[in-house]
């Protein structure tokens, strides 16, 4: 083997090790959480409310709360995000507005999540007077999800071939008719992927709901959009940092972490699956 070949071989081995590290990380996280969490999970754990200051019982209100918050966030972010993507790809000529909006979206995506939390606290909780509530939390998470939905939708819209837009316009369809009858249906799987990705992101976020929505301990389920909610990620945080029975609480946290991890990972794998199928379909 020449020296050149040796260098190449060493280099490639290092790169393979970097890649392998990702798999190891993912494997380690899933393995540790699953190995200790599985024994905690039972039907009661998933369907009952916590009792005795969260040392016994289940985590059902936290699961339900997370679903509510996520649903609320998507309801807010999807129309805004899709509209923004449609404007950027379908309506807007090149120019300063596009650049301005694009830069805003990119920067909004880079804002630390705790800053969203402060914004939600100052605007929704205090100024709008929604208090610490599901509504405040959903609005805050919705803004956080906006860039995810915008970029996924934009990608999906750009992937729709220009030729079918032209076909529609050439038949005398207006721009809007073309968008909602031809372009949007064709881009739907891609937009859906964006929605699912944002669900995965939102469901796992903690910092934005710390001061806007989350409750440490609730016996029942939230009864209005203005009531506080429990949420899985905050629940895990609280179990690890508050309360008086660290041993038992850590065990419950393992169970809750496994539930959250399973939820988020299955959602993101679903998104990846849809996208791959859809891309293959397009090329055929």
């Amino acid at each position: 083997m020449t020296k050149r070949e040796l260098i190449q071989k060493t280099g490639f081995t290092l790169l393979a090790m970097c890649m392998a590290a990702n798999i190891v990380f993912l494997g380690l996280i899933i393995f540790f959480i699953a190995s200790k969490g599985l024994s905690i999970i039972s039907w009661e754990f998933l369907t009952q409310a916590p009792v005795d200051a969260m040392t016994r019982g289940g985590i059902a209100p936290a699961i339900v709360g997370t679903l509510y918050l996520t649903l609320g966030a998507v309801l807010i972010a999807l129309p805004l995000g899709a509209a923004c993507a449609i404007y950027l790809t379908e309506y807007s000529p090149k120019g300063w507005t596009v650049n301005l909006i694009r830069i805003s979206v990119n920067n909004l995506a880079g804002v630390p999540s705790v800053v969203f939390g402060l914004f939600g606290l100052a605007i929704f909780v205090k100024k709008a007077g929604f208090g610490v509530s599901m509504l405040s939390g959903s609005l805050t998470l919705g803004i956080l999800a906006l860039p995810v939905i915008i970029s996924a939708s934009q990608e999906a819209l750009i992937a729709v071939p220009q030729s079918i837009r032209e076909a529609s316009l050439a038949l005398g369809a207006t721009r809007w008719e073309t968008i909602h009858r031809v372009v949007l249906p064709a881009a739907l799987p891609g937009i859906l992927t964006g929605v699912i990705l944002s669900v995965g992101r939102v469901a796992g976020e903690t910092a934005p709901i710390l001061f806007t929505a989350a409750a440490f301990y609730m016996k029942g389920y939230p009864d209005s959009v203005l009531s506080e909610v429990m949420a899985l990620p905050y629940h895990i945080y609280a179990l690890m940092t508050e309360g008086t029975h660290p041993e038992i609480q850590t065990q419950i946290a393992y169970g809750s972490s496994l539930v959250l991890l399973a939820l988020v990972l299955s959602v993101s794998m679903l998104a990846i699956f849809i996208r791959q199928r859809y891309r293959r379909g397009y090329n055929a």
Partner: peptide, 9 residues
């Protein structure tokens, strides 16, 4: 058009 461009419908 040059290339057939049916809608995906």
């Amino acid at each position: 058009f040059q290339k057939p461009n049916p809608f995906p419908k």
